[in-house]
Amino acid sequence: MVRQIYRWFAGGLSSIQIATRLNADGVPGPRGGPWNASTIRGDPKKLVGILNNPLYTGRLVWKRRHWRRDPDSEKRERRYQLRDPSEWIEVGVPDLRIVDDSDFEAVQAEMNARKRSITSLPLAQGNRNRHLLSGLIRCSCCGSNYTISGKDYYRCAGQKERGTCDNRLSVRKGPLEEASLTVIQHHLLTEDHVRLFIAEYEREATRLARIDSHEADTARIRLQQLERELGNLYENLLAGIATPALRQMIDERETEKARLISRNATVDRGVASQPPLPTPFVLQAQFRARIAALRSTLEDPAVRGQAASIMSRLIESVTIYPDEPEGPAAEVVASVASLVAYAINDNAAREGGVSRSKAVVAGAGFEPAAFRL
């Protein structure tokens, strides 16, 4: 099958056409599911995708990526960085070869020819700007993402790239983005939502304060014990009992003492700097003002990438329903905690404990907002 995919692509078929043909023929994908165009084409720079994988030509490449935890992710998700090609390690594995060099070279030549034809278009530069709702739009029929199609439309990837979904509804990018921003600004963060969040926030802050207070009391008791133990140990040291074991006991207790003092100071600073939340009215006004400012700058291409990053934190999903009785509709879902954090100040809110109560607040009394397309 891999050889056939190479020949189809070299013969002029696109990765979308190949994926659609394989799905129509009932051929299972690499992991048993449907085929996707990205599975076939991948990314030449990262050597991923069937058409770029050197393993099919008998070459195994190591150390392409460096994985590390994302410090801004609550779930501690992993991200990777692509290493410089000079750091990659290639090992020959001829027994794993599936594709002839001639077929591989024909595919690379076809990719380069298509790349040149695409980059020659005047819209290529503009299309590299990140779209405001990238990765957030879902199809209600199959659950696939809606991805950009052409210049101004979103389409279901299940229908566009795999041919496995019957949802052929295309949605104009501009009106969908504008409607989503309007819903966020005026309908998602209501006064009732803010009051609910503040109540849950204060309840969670009180619970955490009790835990910190209990741990601080325990640490103070332990510090008193350490002072007495260190006094006895130093008396023995002054009396001339300077054994290695005695010095080790002193070092261990001094280290523990410094750790407890540092921890108590951190807890005290955290309690002192805990910011009070504004009133619901003020929070709503701050939030709407920030969204309005965001909307006013979206025509600047340099800002759209940053705006898309903000939207990915504010919105959990935008679901497209193509077959509603009154016409196609979209449903916007967000977390109250994310909206409030943005209204206050994202970084300060996260440090002040908003993110710690997010799980408590996110689903309580908070219905999604919908609009017609």
Rank of each mutant, 00 (worst) to 15 (best):
V354P: 14
S102L: 14
R138N: 05
T57D: 06
V183E: 00
A289R: 15
R195L: 12
A369M: 15
Y201H: 14
D25Y: 06
R41E: 14
R116H: 06
R356C: 14
V303W: 06
L51C: 03
R222K: 11
V361N: 03
R220P: 04
S149I: 13
D217Y: 03
I261V: 09
F197T: 01
R295T: 12
L260G: 07
N236V: 07
G240W: 06
I184S: 10
G126I: 02
E235I: 15
I221K: 12
D346F: 10
R41I: 11
N167C: 00
N129V: 14
A292V: 03
N52A: 07
D152Q: 04
A292Y: 12
G158S: 04
R83M: 10
Q81T: 06
I5L: 11
L13N: 11
S134A: 12
A289M: 14
K115V: 13
I5A: 05
G58E: 14
G135R: 05
A37V: 09
Q159W: 10
Q286T: 01
Q159E: 11
A341E: 13
H131P: 08
A157F: 10
V360S: 13
P275T: 01
I50G: 07
I16W: 14
V354G: 02
A109P: 11
D323I: 07
V267K: 05
A10G: 03
N53G: 00
V303S: 01
A334V: 06
L60D: 04
R68Y: 12
I261N: 03
V267Q: 00
A242K: 10
L226A: 11
R155P: 05
H186N: 13
A24T: 02
T164G: 08
C165R: 02
I291S: 04
R68V: 01
N232Y: 13
L230F: 01
K257L: 10
N129G: 06
I98R: 12
C156I: 14
N167T: 02
A124V: 10
K358G: 15
K151E: 14
M311V: 03
V360K: 06
R65I: 13
A292D: 06
L260I: 09
D217Q: 14
E105A: 11
E229N: 08
T190S: 10
V171E: 00
N53W: 06
A10P: 00
T147F: 12
E227H: 15
R172K: 09
Y80E: 06
I118H: 10
A37S: 05
G11F: 09
P276W: 05
G143I: 05
L373W: 09
P328R: 01
A359C: 04
R128Q: 13
W62C: 12
A199H: 15
N236Y: 15
I241N: 10
R172A: 05
D152V: 13
V99R: 12
K63T: 01
I50M: 12
Y153E: 10
